[in-house]
Amino acid sequence: MNYNWDWGILFREPYFDWLVEGLMWTVSLSLCAWVIAFALGSVLGIMRSCSSRPLQLIATVYVELFRNVPLLVQLFLWYFVFPELLPDDAGRWVKREMPMPALTTAIIAIGLYTASRVCEQVRSGIAAVGIGQRNAGKAIGMNEWQVYRYILLPNAFRIIIPPLTSEFLTIFKNSSLALTIGVVELTAMTRQIEEYTFQGFEAFTAATVIYSVVTFTVMLLMRVVERRIRIPGMIATS
């Protein structure tokens, strides 16, 4: 193979800046999508496990809808099809006039998709806390919301920190799909470096290292969080 290795390229301008900028977009996209996924997913998880049939049904339909369509297809639907379904003005606004249409669409699409997965984690966490705790809460006269707020959720979220961490990391990796609708995040920047310099190996190695370092850092951080909020006397399960 006749390939001119040049690791220095990664630290030369403008390529270094491109990597940094790409990482920033990846991180912001992931964090924003996570906020949506976590908030909506938690609400849906509560709805799916609560005593109201209609709320259960709404959450179930949501989950089945969003979990079973591939994320890439959802991304295209939101970006290319959804604006066409809107009235002309609104459609144009979504496509072009709203701030950073591609990024915003990617955040919403990935956020809504991941919410369905977070919902299932939250639901299983609540189920793991158990009917006995629910009954104990009700038995002292707490209403359903109080039982969730003070008993079920604090315990459920502790249980599901590991799966939620991996859902966040999945968002982080899925964020690279956003390049298909033109968001210039880390993977897109990497490809751009390759196109400009033909140093694809170095560029993709750099991307791989960056993704891994962030993933690893998040995992470490969540370990610390887990330890911090561990309940005294309980045996660690992870």
Binding site: G132, N135, A136, A139, P154, N155, R158, I231, M234
Partner: peptide, 13 residues
């Protein structure tokens, strides 16, 4: 009405 369960069901956190 107070209720006491077989499995205690104290709030662990």
């Amino acid at each position: 009405i107070g209720m006491v369960f077989q499995s205690f069901e104290l709030f662990p956190h």
